[in-house]
Each structure stands twice: as structure tokens, then as C-alpha cells.
């Protein structure tokens, strides 16, 4: 039987948002192939998960059960995918483009000796698959053909809108116990450390005030902090500012930093390089404050103030205070 097999993840007992997105693309693929959509879950979950998966059109659910799989172990997951592939011969294996999705899918691709297309946004079945995938964080798209049995695909995060199936209904549950070698369990989470960071994480903030090279030094971030506090937001930075040592890397927005999606991103003294913009393209509004009216960020954003951030930012703070 051919099928499309999806790897899904859970957060606090619910299907993770990025897994909903991956399932939506996987279902579209299954529809194109006229094949059933199957999913594999590793976590010890309650029934709720089955209902949720069914609503996304999953008809076959493989629950992985193994007494040595009590922690996240990526090689064991890859081994499981390998064995499911051997047994069911799916056309494609689809995973969310999350850290774990890539961690597991990359290893599975290596074991299976098949290609993997990371961060796909669109897939068409035909002669193999034609995929559209991200390069450079999505500032460039690659159209490619992937042939592999199966084709391994991850789905770029927050690019495919999650949509439940129109006729989602019931699914059949199977328990699956993989054969695992000691080496499959060598890498696994030994413990979790909680961070003592306070405040709203950048990824979840509704307002982000970002500062780039134009801020000119570490002290002047105080002005940005003040405005961010007033708006209940968080301060971010460009890589140039982080490289200068003005802000910690945790504050970096962009390709190799945080991907933010606030209601408004106030970008101060940031030029708008593509590697920065891919980190803030999820922002509903961008307000740029820059001395250079020609800066690229002026084209990418919704609003702009032309001027020196050292004067404009405090003026905004004061105007809000005066209300």
C-alpha cells in the first residue's frame, strides 16, 4: 500500500502548531496521490491526540511503544522511521521544519540513503515530486525535483496555513514496536535545564524594539528598553549589534537568530539586510526609524520615521507618557 507518512510532535499534550502545518501539506500530498495519510507519534499521549490527528485527515496512526523510549532519542526515532518505511513503503515522509523535525529527518535520510528536501512550502506530485523550498531563510526559493523512495520532506515553519480536513473522521490505531540497537539510544536527552531568563521571550513578544548598528553603543539601548517596557515588549538586535558586543546573541533577530512575529516591530538603526528581514517577516507591522531614507528597511516596512533614533525614540516614549 502506498501512503504518506507524517512525523508529528506534541506540546503539552496538544498537536504542535508546526505539526498541524506539516500535516496540512502532507494531506494535500496524500490527496494528490490518492493515498492514505498516516502519522507516527512517539510521545506517550492520551486519546486526545488521536482525535486531533483524525481531524487533520490522518487515517492510520502508528503509536510507537518501546520500554527504552522514555526520552527523546533522535537515532531511535530515525531507526523507527526506517523500519516503518521498510514495512509500509510510503511515497513520502513529511516532518515539521522544527529543530526535532530536522534532527530526526536528517538522520532518517542518512540511514535510508535517500535525499531530503528541507523547509518545503509547496509540493506537487508527478514525476517524483516537484518541491518549492526555502533557501536563505526564505529570501530565496528553490524549485527542485526530488526522487527517492521515499522522498523525505520537511515543511517550513509558519508558511503553510494549518487547515483541518473537510471530511476528517476516524482513524485506525496501530501499535508499533521498533527493534532498537544500543547505538540507537546513545544520543538522548539526559536532563532538561530550565532557564532563569525573565521577561517575555523574543519569539512570543507582541512588541519588539530592535536596535542595530545605528544605536552606536551598548548604553543607548536604555532608550530602546524604556520604550519596549512602556509597550510591554522586548528589545531585539541586529547581528551587527551583537557582533559589536552591545547585546547578547539571545537578542538577535534574523537568519541565525530569533524569528519574531509581533504586532509591531520597531526597527531602530537597522538597514534591512535580507538575513535580518527573514527573522522579522512574521511581524504584522514594521516601523523603521532610520537616518537614511533610502535604507532597504524603508521598503520592507509599513511605516517609517526618517531621523536620528537617539532623538526619535525618546520623543516617542515621552509622547506615550504624556498620553
Amino acid at each position: 500500500m502506498t501512503m504518506v507518512l507524517a512525523l508529528v510532535e506534541h506540546e503539552e499534550g496538544r498537536l504542535a502548531e508546526t505539526s498541524q502545518q506539516a500535516l496540512t501539506l502532507a494531506r494535500d500530498l496524500a490527496d494528490q496521490e490518492d493515498a492514505p495519510l498516516a502519522a507516527v507519534v512517539f510521545e506517550d499521549d492520551d486519546e486526545q491526540v488521536g482525535f486531533e490527528l483524525a481531524s487533520y485527515g490522518v487515517t492510520e496512526l502508528y503509536r510507537v511503544e518501546h520500554d527504552r523510549l522514555d526520552r527523546y532519542a533522535p537515532d531511535a526515532r530515525a531507526a523507527t522511521v526506517h523500519q516503518l518505511v521498510d514495512e509500509h513503503d510510503p511515497e513520502a515522509v513529511v516532518a515539521p521544519g522544527s529543530d526535532r523535525g530536522h534532527d530526526v529527518l536528517g538522520r532518517a535520510a542518512a540511514r535510508l540513503g535517500v535525499p531530503m528536501a528541507a523547509n518545503c512550502v509547496e509540493v506537487t506530485a508527478g514525476d517524483g515530486y516537484e518541491v518549492t523550498r526555502h533557501r536563505w531563510g526564505g529570501s530565496l526559493l528553490e524549485h527542485a525535483r526530488i526522487d527517492g523512495s521515499p522522498a523525505l520532506l520537511s515543511v517550513a515553519q509558519h508558511e503553510v496555513a494549518a487547515e483541518e480536513a473537510e471530511d476528517g473522521g476516524s482513524l485506525t490505531e496501530h501499535s508499533f514496536t521498533p527493534t532498537l540497537a544500543d547505538s540507537d539510544l546513545l544520543v538522548g536527552i539526559d536532563r532538561i535545564e530550565e532557564s532563569d531568563e525573565e521577561g517575555v521571550p523574543l519569539e512570543e513578544a507582541r512588541v519588539v524594539v530592535g536596535g542595530g548598528r545605528g544605536v552606536g553603543g551598548p548604553e543607548d539601548y536604555d532608550k530602546l528598553e524604556e520604550l519596549a517596557d512602556l509597550l510591554g515588549g522586548t528589545v531585539g538586535a541586529s547581528r551587527a549589534a551583537v557582533n559589536e558586543g552591545w547585546r547578547p546573541h539571545d537578542d538577535q533577530v534574523g537568519l541565525t537568530g530569533a524569528k519574531i512575529s509581533p504586532d509591531v516591530y520597531i526597527a531602530c538603526g537597522i538597514s534591512g539586510a535580507v538575513q535580518h528581514m527573514v527573522g522579522c517577516k512574521g511581524a504584522k507591522n514594521i516601523l523603521a526609524i532610520n537616518t537614511d531614507p533610502e535604507a532597504a528597511i524603508m521598503e520592507n516596512g509599513e511605516y517609517a520615521v526618517v531621523g536620528d533614533l537617539h532623538e526619535v525614540v525618546p520623543a516617542i516614549t515621552e509622547a506615550i507618557r504624556e498620553g
Partner: peptide, 20 residues
């Protein structure tokens, strides 16, 4: 097994300049 690049594409950005 095959993975073949067909072409690259620079995605459209809404080029509309910001409201100053």
C-alpha cells in the same frame, strides 16, 4: 537518488515603500 534543482526564484516582496 535524484534531487535536481530546476531553478531559483527571488520571492516577491511587497515593494510598496513605507508610509513616512
Amino acid at each position: 537518488p535524484t534531487f535536481e534543482r530546476i531553478r531559483l526564484e527571488a520571492p516577491e516582496t511587497d515593494e510598496g515603500a513605507a508610509e513616512v
